[in-house]
Design a protein around this nucleic acid. Structure first.
Lengths: 255, 255
DNA sequence: CCGTCACATTGACCTGCGTCAACACAGAGC
DNA sequence: GCTCTGTGTTGACGCAGGTCAATGTGACGG
């Protein structure tokens, strides 16, 4: 994925032809599916090439500017989304305006898999984002014909549940510094599956978003980042951080 | 369920003959399945009577004293449990001993559905508890033959994910008083599905457990409970609370 | 080039909840 | 009966992190 597809308004036509599966760990499938629009990173281990093409035929490519809304909490949900480029913020609002960010979606992630009547959270683009939309009913019917996909789906949901429980530990029992370290390490691990192993961690979200994810205020996030930077554990760079003292961070973040 | 099956060491033979599905909202299935050991409250809408009997044939009835361990975090998991009576604490430990309770299992709940290699958390009995154990492989094979069950399972996992996200909001963005109110309301709603609609909410867990669930200390939980009691929102009774001012509590707990 | 706006950082101060300590009480074991 | 242990409550005090305010800085539009 090159920078031009992220900066500025994304071009749906580009999404159509982008080799979105080039990074798939299952090299064979990737080779066969360079032309597919679905970025099924987490699914492709369970997919035959022809199945990918079938999914691809069902996909409706979309693109969003930064800050555009993909869908909103409590709104009837009839779609499943696969993020192909960019980054998305997932959050819940309390009636009085307090906000809890429940997660960030990166390329390869699926949204709306829960098959519930209404969306559990709102989703909006942090940066220019491209996604594929599937009609819920069509997707669901396809799943009925492919039980092995359903199993894969269930295992993805279980994994997400496990991540949510880890987040519960972070929110319930960790200090501000540990939360920030855990966030950086967690995000690095997710970028690694997408971009390969770098100590450079892009942060497409604001400090406010990070705070609302970690149950902290902007100021506390900023202070903890500067503290980690002062102590040479990280370097703050434009649009991200560089992780210097990985062992130190991992010690802070360890389960 | 009568009190005698909760107090003291539960009797496996009693578990065998208990009409555990008597409370199933799907009355027809319940009538046909009084003799089944599996308490499939949340599954029975998707089950035919003969399927319940098949599941029942696979079930190994177990009973645990209070404080006994069902399974431990990180241990290889080869079983699925269905709780038939009692209550179970689910928690994660940090290396330094801090504890996060990720949930409480009540009769009808399933544990270990995630199909992952290792347990994501430890589970131990709060009170004398009976459960049915299924071998993971047998259970899994049965699911392969019944895709509609797998769908139901996926929807249960999605529901759990949604509950975990609500818990993230509670841990990240709510005050101590709101957390306690949300906990009481949430627990009441779960007991209601089991025992019917009562304002009496049994609390089989200690204040420490509640604190570790809500990201608070014992003292804070105790203080908030006394405050709610002083303000006539609840009454504290042995082994539980009685909810007096439901609207007030719901306002505190509202999403 | 300037004004505006969103975001980030930093400092000074405040407070909700954690910490520590004391005490009450019930059940278990003897 | 007695002690012991686990649990719950309450009070006094401290601190991590929230609140409020000031300042900086880069992107964008005119």
């Amino acid at each position: 994925m090159d920078a031009s597809s992220i900066k500025g308004r994304p071009d749906p036509a580009a999404a159509l032809s982008a080799p979105v599966l080039a990074l798939c760990p299952n090299a064979k499938a990737a080779v066969h599916c360079d032309q597919c629009r679905v970025r099924a990173l987490s699914l492709c281990a369970a997919l035959e090439p022809h199945e990918l093409h079938e999914l691809d035929a069902m996909a409706q490519p979309l693109s969003f500017d930064a800050k555009e809304t993909l869908f909103e909490q409590s709104e009837a949900s009839d779609s499943v989304y696969n993020i192909t480029a960019g980054s998305v913020r997932l959050y819940k609002l309390l009636p009085d305006g307090r906000r809890q960010v429940v997660g960030f979606a990166l390329p390869g992630d699926f949204l709306g898999l829960s098959m519930s009547e209404r969306n559990a959270f709102s989703a909006d683009a942090l940066t220019a984002t491209t996604a594929c939309r599937f009609s819920r009913s069509e997707y669901s019917a396809y799943l009925d014909a492919k039980p092995h996909l359903l199993r894969r789906l269930h295992s993805m949901a279980s994994h997400e549940l496990s991540l949510a429980q880890d987040q519960m530990v972070i929110l319930g029992r960790r200090t501000a510094e540990e939360r920030v370290a855990a966030f950086l390490i967690g995000l690095r691990n997710r970028w690694t599956r997408i971009n390969g192993n770098h100590v450079h961690v892009p942060l497409p979200m604001t400090r406010q978003d990070i705070g609302d994810f970690l149950g902290l205020t902007v100021e506390t996030v900023s202070r903890m980042m500067t503290r980690l930077a002062r102590e040479k554990a990280i370097v703050i760079v434009p649009d991200g951080v560089r992780l210097l003292d990985l062992p130190r961070l991992e010690r802070l973040a360890e389960t």
